[in-house]
C-alpha cells in the first residue's frame, strides 16, 4: 500500500509541473516572428519554403549548431532561413525569460505566401 502511494506521488508531480509552463501570448509570438522576418532575405525566383527547428539559450540566442530541417527543403532555403534567425539574434531575442521552457525549442515554418508567387 505504501509503495503504491509513493509511486502515485512520483507520477503526479511531474505531470503538474509539465502543465505549468505558460505559452507565449499571440503578441509575444508576433513580436518574435517580426524580428526574424526582418532578417529573412528572399532570393528572387528561389523556392524559400523550409521548416527548421533549433534550440535557444536562456538569454534568447539560438544555439548555432542545433539547426535541423523538419521534413525536406532545398539546402539553400535552409541556409537562408538559418541566416535570418542568427542574424537578428545579435543582441538576443526579447523573449520572456521566466518562461524559458515555452521557447527553449523553436520550430519556424518559412513560406513566401505573404509576398505572392516567388517562382
Amino acid at each position: 500500500m505504501s509503495v503504491r502511494r509513493a509511486l502515485t506521488a512520483m507520477m503526479l508531480a511531474p505531470v503538474a509541473a509539465l502543465a505549468q509552463p505558460a505559452a507565449l501570448s499571440p503578441a509575444e509570438k508576433t513580436g518574435f516572428a517580426g524580428r526574424v522576418e526582418s532578417c529573412w532575405t528572399l532570393a528572387q525566383g528561389v523556392d524559400p519554403r523550409v521548416t527548421l527547428r533549433f534550440a535557444m539559450t536562456p538569454d534568447g540566442r539560438p544555439v548555432a549548431d542545433s539547426f535541423v530541417v523538419v521534413g525536406t527543403a532545398a539546402q539553400t532555403a535552409f541556409e537562408a532561413a538559418r541566416r535570418a534567425v542568427l542574424r537578428c539574434a545579435r543582441a538576443g531575442y526579447d523573449l520572456p525569460k521566466d518562461r524559458y521552457d515555452a521557447w527553449d525549442l523553436i520550430e519556424i515554418t518559412f513560406t513566401a505566401d505573404g509576398i505572392g508567387a516567388m517562382s
Binding site: 511531474p14 507565449l24 509570438k29 509576398i115
Partner: peptide, 25 residues
C-alpha cells in the same frame, strides 16, 4: 514513468510561421 503523452507535451517546440521576408540583396 508515464508513457509518451507527458513527454510529447514537454518537448513540443514553440511553433511560428513566417510568411513574409525582405526582398533585398
Amino acid at each position: 514513468l508515464l508513457g509518451p503523452l507527458p513527454a510529447l507535451a514537454q518537448d513540443a517546440p514553440l511553433r511560428i510561421e513566417i510568411t513574409e521576408g525582405v526582398v533585398r540583396p
